[in-house]
Design a binder for these strands. Structure first.
Length: 304
DNA sequence: TCCCAGGCCGTCG
DNA sequence: CGACGGCATGGG
């Protein structure tokens, strides 16, 4: 019975297995949630996923309404994947037009992960002007070169490097992570955060706009990165990150937005149109970007 | 070899 | 403010 339900690694390790049975009215899709580009560093391992949350090596698999995992307590998993949020309630609140409706129906069970704040900030500083596979590579290199190896983990599995570890790394080491010109930004921001204990709690306690203003003071952090961190780490759902895809989708699918010029115009549209959970709407639009932005519809940043 | 990527920074009008 | 150009590197 156990054997047929659980993946192979459970038998091999035989250790702290847990499971969560999802409520029937609370959809969750692990694959979609981990592969949509909001969080970096999870790797597929057969039909399971392997990742590091804090200093815990987590393996997790989904079969139907059951999540099976090791390396973390159920409470942590619930918190990390936002399983205690009422997703149908959120989705019904943002389901205000045919475009978002399509995205919602095509991405069932997508949830926003609550990431560790520093990891999220550093990851998205590394993410600027890059493709998602490129970001995965950089984050993976950062872990291997500057993180702490996990005692019980397979070789190569490391915690995400602390601000101090990145701040203390020499330029050569950082350059070895394929960061390009972002190395300088990451290094500088790491130094600032390392010397500012309480940074995370301070941001968490601020309302969205003030929290964003605070993040914008950091090097390598513009409006887009700040919004990603506020959404993916701090759970500030008003954050509506505008990348090239979201810009394309909003301008292309919402006629009243066609001539928007600035970042904040699109962000304010998101908040006023979708409401308090605009960030969730953004994530669903992003996840379904392939269909919504279209292939031939290659509108450039400038002109065309 | 091309083009593009979950943008940011500095600078100029 | 708003609009550019430059930017290091990897993937398709």
């Amino acid at each position: 019975m156990l054997i047929s339900v659980h993946p192979r690694w459970i038998q091999e390790r035989g250790l702290d297995m847990h499971s969560i049975v999802l409520e029937p009215d609370q959809p969750f899709d692990l694959d979609l949630t981990l592969s949509c580009g909001q969080v970096f560093g999870w790797e597929r391992e057969g039909d399971a996923w392997r990742g590091v949350v804090g200093r815990d090596l987590v393996r997790i698999a989904q079969r139907g309404d059951r999540l099976s995992f090791s390396g973390a307590d159920p409470s942590l998993i619930r918190h990390y994947f936002g399983l205690d949020l009422d997703l149908p309630e959120i989705l019904s609140s943002i389901d205000r037009d045919p475009v978002i409706h399509r995205a919602i129906t095509h991405c069932p069970g997508l949830r926003i992960v609550r990431q560790p704040a520093w990891e999220c900030l550093a990851s998205f500083i590394c993410a600027t002007y890059s493709s998602i596979p490129g970001i995965e590579k950089r984050v993976s290199l950062l872990r291997r070169h500057l993180g702490d190896p996990l005692p019980a983990g397979p070789p190569g599995s490391c915690s995400f490097p602390s601000p101090a570890a990145i701040a203390g790394a020499d330029g050569c080491m950082l350059s070895g992570c394929s960061l390009g010109y972002r190395a300088r930004y990451l290094s500088e921001t790491a130094r600032l955060v390392a010397n500012d204990p309480g940074w995370e709690e301070r941001i968490a306690a601020l309302p969205y706009r003030e929290a964003r203003a605070e993040l914008l003071r950091l090097r390598g952090v513009g409006k887009k990165v700040a919004d990603c961190v506020l959404l993916f780490a701090f759970g500030k759902w008003e954050a509506f990150p505008v990348d090239v895809w979201i810009e394309r989708i909003v301008k292309g699918c919402y006629p009243e937005c066609r001539d928007f010029r600035t970042y904040d115009q699109i962000g304010e549209f998101g908040r006023s149109h979708f409401g308090r959970y605009a960030g969730y709407a953004q994530e669903y639009l992003f996840c379904y970007r392939g269909a919504l932005a279209g292939r031939g519809n290659s509108a450039r940043k400038r002109g065309a």
